[in-house]
Design a protein around this nucleic acid. Structure first.
Length: 429
RNA sequence: GUGGGCGUAGCUCAGUUGGUUAGAGCGCCUGGUUGUGGUCCAGGAGGUCGGGGGUUCGAAUCCCCUCGUUCACCCCA
């Protein structure tokens, strides 16, 4: 490939039509689902004070080395960072504005991590998500998980499975951490070198190791669920009962500790079995009952999730689900009299909500018909000297057997306006 | 940050042990059809072989560096 002068930076990419339309449709559908569950959209800055994100976990790579951070031009300069995730931003906004609880917001947008790109992992990636702040009712957990599960169903993704776990809280987790740490130390010498390092930094994360050498020790490790106190145990039971009552299937995964330090009690993750690559998690979330307070707000429980749009679309590819929406153009105007009449006809059609397009440059009728065909439009409107002389246009059906007839120019709009407007037809999946 | 694979036309790819003007399919443009797309036929445009350096009489082909990409690790959506 020839070397262009510039290209999209490493780990970023352009998303062109029609893929961009598919992505737009996916986000729109999520927005509609969230709204239906009572969520309002939060639009927050793409960069924040670095400190906002440092609260999400001092020991995580997301904070220690994967942040796009920079200083602004103030005096003194402010240390800012492109957001690596959105939960912290939502909590910062809550602490700043103190809205009435429970506060239910959804969001979508680009996020940034300075990582080595690979399949389903980009330096700029897009997530959609929701957060509920101000309640620790386990039914809120269920509601949130159900929203994600039903969303995956609605876009036609079948091979997605849900795993849940509870990480306990400040009253019961320490005892578990002690037991876990003791267990790993007991078998320290048999752990992989990498896990030995991880153990010192965050014992929970050793549970995440996929190295075969570690599996036997991990399988024998104590599990958090056995250490839950009365309150956290009841909460977890209630979440499970709620999911059961809604018929949402799940596995309980003791290893599901997730990456960010702020999680407490419920954690969950959705994995796409259709994705062969190592990056098969299409979404995840959990409860973070201390995060708002960490960011200077009042003690406020919270639960939410984020779904990776890029990976969901990869999974849709693998399952041949969620096809790009059909073009919004239902009429293509072919004008071989100079193009001025196409200008007028398009204007009239668009004015009444009918998608219309045309070609440029005064090309031959054959050439314009080819473009009309490619456009995906239902109809071609042909304007030649004969039609002009008769005050008519030729209306040709580009699908099916392709019949055509002459109609009065003034009647065109009514002729192509269908019982249900073509421009709003939205074929599912 | 670490390790491996891969970079040839807009896309997917051939290109023999290094050897003349680097090919195919699809796509695009034009024509066959001076008023008709989706099928067919013919023709055409489009490449300093990712970039730089080196070896050689000669490099798409061999070597080094670099950039990008991809897979995996680390980590994680």
């Amino acid at each position: 490939m020839a070397a262009p002068t510039f290209r999209a930076p490493k780990g970023t990419r352009d998303i062109l039509p029609p893929e961009s339309a598919r992505r737009r449709a996916l986000v729109d559908r999520f927005a509609a689902a969230a709204a239906l569950s009572g969520f309002g959209e939060l639009v927050s800055p793409i960069f924040e004070d670095l400190g906002v994100f440092q609260r999400i976990g001092e020991a995580t790579d997301v904070v220690t080395k994967e942040m796009f951070d920079f200083f602004d031009k103030g005096d003194p300069p402010q240390h800012l960072a492109l957001r690596p995730e959105l939960t912290a931003s939502v909590c910062r906004a809550f602490a700043e504005h103190r809205p009435v609880a429970p506060w239910k917001v959804w969001y979508e947008g680009p996020q940034f991590r300075y990582e080595q790109p690979q399949a389903g992992r980009y330096r700029q990636f897009t997530q959609v998500g929701v957060e509920v702040l101000g309640t620790d009712d386990p039914q809120a957990d269920v509601d949130v998980i159900a929203l994600a599960a039903r969303f995956f169903e609605s876009i036609g993704l079948g091979r997605v499975h849900l795993s849940i776990n509870s990480l306990g809280d400040a009253t019961c987790r320490p005892a578990y951490l002690d037991a876990l740490t003791a267990h790993f130390h007991e078998h320290h010498d048999r752990l992989s070198a990498q896990s030995q390092v991880t153990l010192e930094r965050n014992p929970l994360r050793v549970l995440d190791s996929k190295r075969p050498q570690d599996q036997e020790i991990i399988d024998a490790a104590p599990v958090m669920v056995d250490f839950l106190g009365a309150d956290t145990g009841a909460h977890f039971d209630a979440v499970r009962a709620g999911l059961d009552s809604l018929g949402i299937g799940y596995d309980i995964s003791p290893r599901l500790v997730r990456g960010l330090d702020y999680y407490t009690r419920t954690t969950f993750e959705f994995a796409a079995d259709a994705l062969e690559s190592a990056q098969n998690a299409v979404g995840g979330g959990g409860r973070y009952d201390g995060l708002v307070e960490d960011l200077g707000g009042p003690p406020t429980p919270g639960i939410g999730f984020a779904l990776g749009v890029d990976r969901i679309l990869l999974a849709c590819d693998a399952e041949e689900a969620f096809a790009p929406p059909r073009t919004a153009v239902s009429v293509f105007v072919v004008d071989v009299t100079g193009g001025g009449r196409a200008l007028d006809v398009c204007e009239r059609l668009r004015g009444v909500g009918i998608g219309a397009d045309r070609s440029y440059g005064g090309r031959s009728m054959k050439a314009q018909m080819k473009v009309a065909d490619r456009s995906g439009a239902r109809f071609a409107v042909i304007i030649g000297e004969d039609e002009v002389a008769a005050g008519e246009v030729t209306l040709r059906d580009l699908r099916g057997d392709g019949g055509q007839r002459r109609v009065a120019a003034d009647a065109l709009v009514d002729e192509v306006r269908p019982p249900t407007p073509l421009s709003t037809i939205d074929e599912d999946t």
